[in-house]
Design a binder for these strands. Structure first.
Lengths: 108, 108
DNA sequence: GACATATTTAGGCAAATGGCTAAGTATATC
DNA sequence: GATATACTTAGCCATTTGCCTAAATATGTC
């Protein structure tokens, strides 16, 4: 079943939903959510975030690169340090709802 | 570095962020976003969604189970069919922002 | 009870993820 | 230009994802 052009989605929809999924995927990790939460308060350099997160700097750096590619954060270098900040503070808006959803899920 | 109890996050924060990440992770897939979008219009049985998505029914069923565990959809059986619907329509709220973020990312 | 339809579950496999160590790059200091 | 610090990239490995096929379950019909 569904071997050829059975569905209309296979052609038309992925563009929109793939793009959205990419952003959500970038956020869908505890460490990255923590980082985003921190950056919503103020910008931070990689070394500060590394200290707070408690993983290797290379790991934190990868998370930041991923968030950057998703368009969620931006960075600039000052001396030896690289500072990251939220590019779209509105990202924070939907966490309330996310939490609400989660509460329901846990109740079950 | 960061070998022992270096960070405060390692102990305290994961609980909150893990829960949020779980919800985002459940949504972070094009097919599941499509399904959620469809269900925001009206409830659907698995066979309808299967037809629209264009994957095997077993695959769609798995996606639905995943969404259900995340607390995003709920279902009930009527005869041979199982109907799914959104449990938290507010899930739809943050897609506008997600899209905004994405637009930025693509611009680069 | 045999049979068809709708759905889920199990098992397998290729690809993606997330972590680490180690090596490379860039900037500032001596 | 040697050295130290901050960061990124590469390579490796274990785990997770996502899809498929095949088998199991459940419900309704003959």
């Amino acid at each position: 079943m569904a071997k050829y052009i059975t569905s209309f989605m296979a052609q038309t929809l992925p563009v929109k939903f793939k793009a959205q999924a990419a952003v959500l995927k970038a956020l869908a990790h505890p460490t990255r959510l923590f980082i985003v939460d921190e950056l919503s308060k103020r910008e931070r350099c990689v070394c500060e975030l590394t200290e707070m997160v408690g993983s290797e700097m290379s790991t934190v750096s990868k998370h930041l690169t991923l968030l950057k590619h998703a368009g969620i954060v931006e960075d600039d270098k000052r001396g030896v340090q690289v500072f990251y900040r939220l590019k779209r503070p509105c990202v924070m808006n939907f966490f309330k709802c996310v939490t609400a959803v989660r509460k329901d899920a846990i109740e079950e």
